[in-house]
Design a protein around this nucleic acid. Sequence first.
DNA 1: GCAAATTAATTAGAGAACTAAAGAAAAATG
DNA 2: CATTTTTCTTTAGTTCTCTAATTAATTTGC
Lengths: 189, 189
Amino acid sequence: MTNEEPRTPQGLASRAEHNLSALKTMSTSDKIEEVLVALRRVIRATDLHSKKLVKTASVTGPQLLLLQIVNAKGDMTISELARDMSLSQATVTTILDRLQKRELIERVRSETDKRKVHPRLTDHGRKILSTAPTALQDNFVRRFRALDEWEQGMIIAALQRVAEMMDAKDIDASPFLDVGALDRAIPPV
Amino acid sequence: MTNEEPRTPQGLASRAEHNLSALKTMSTSDKIEEVLVALRRVIRATDLHSKKLVKTASVTGPQLLLLQIVNAKGDMTISELARDMSLSQATVTTILDRLQKRELIERVRSETDKRKVHPRLTDHGRKILSTAPTALQDNFVRRFRALDEWEQGMIIAALQRVAEMMDAKDIDASPFLDVGALDRAIPPV
DNA sequence: GCAAATTAATTAGAGAACTAAAGAAAAATG
DNA sequence: CATTTTTCTTTAGTTCTCTAATTAATTTGC
């Protein structure tokens, strides 16, 4: 422990209490600011984390994500994969090309429908994957484990709430924000 | 409201209670899984959001991030900017080149030290920025506002906790994970 | 004061990611 | 069986990102 934090239940509790008492006097817009700042920190930390990971794994972010998905979901088509990664088919094809050149995946034509291609991990690809993604969350997991039960519970509940609020379809809001255009997305976790 | 969610205090409270009661019977690794899944959802939602935003703003992610930082922090050098964005100087220079070509920023040489260059938003750049980033968080903010005070407080406290755990320097853990190599990072929030 | 070292930014060169558009092959439709 | 649709690949063009020079300005040591 280098940057020491109070790790005792008292320490955690008092921190939380501090936040709660500060909240009483906080305007809604202040609260929103707080929540957005915290979110940005979380997201930035994730990015940094994943960048570092990428270096150690010797694959890029999108490549790693692809490997993870293929590993988790088994045989799937390029289009499914593209949908899962929120990328275009063409992009997935080129990422696959590079992974194939390095022999981390291979392409298997479907027997039943010869248009379809199933990317499949090679042994080498599996090995890369097994070394990489564990490191990613290790730190966070270790710290999370050290928390009190009640705080773990609070965090789960809160994150789920936030996730809901964020990934709920924007349908209800779109009428006055929407710009048309469905979108894509990327990055590795 | 299309995917209706119970928006009443009762609805929210009962959902939270549900989570809490489920927690009692949940193993630590299950909890960790829950928390990671929720995190991934949050991050993915953010990415999708920012992708959409990027389309509407007609700038790319890194470009938008750069504009946001310059706007927020005023006169700064390229190296500061690079540090803030966790990119190399050279990368920032090329991003600036493109923004300058589109006249969203201009370069101002420092008077006191002529090696230094201060990127500055043009009116057009400010306009781009003002249309874009509001939309980004609107949905989330609207939903957040609709929550009960206690739930807003819980979410802030939890997110801050998570942010701490994530962006605390990895120093203490690195001895057995570290691969050397400082890292960089990217994306727009 | 001026040569040497340092600092700031740019340029050059190259790999990867991404998109849109067009093309090729297989399967479904009528 | 000709047409349409689906699935994947190819191509061309932009952007992002890095490392390794390069240029210019400042600071340091003597």
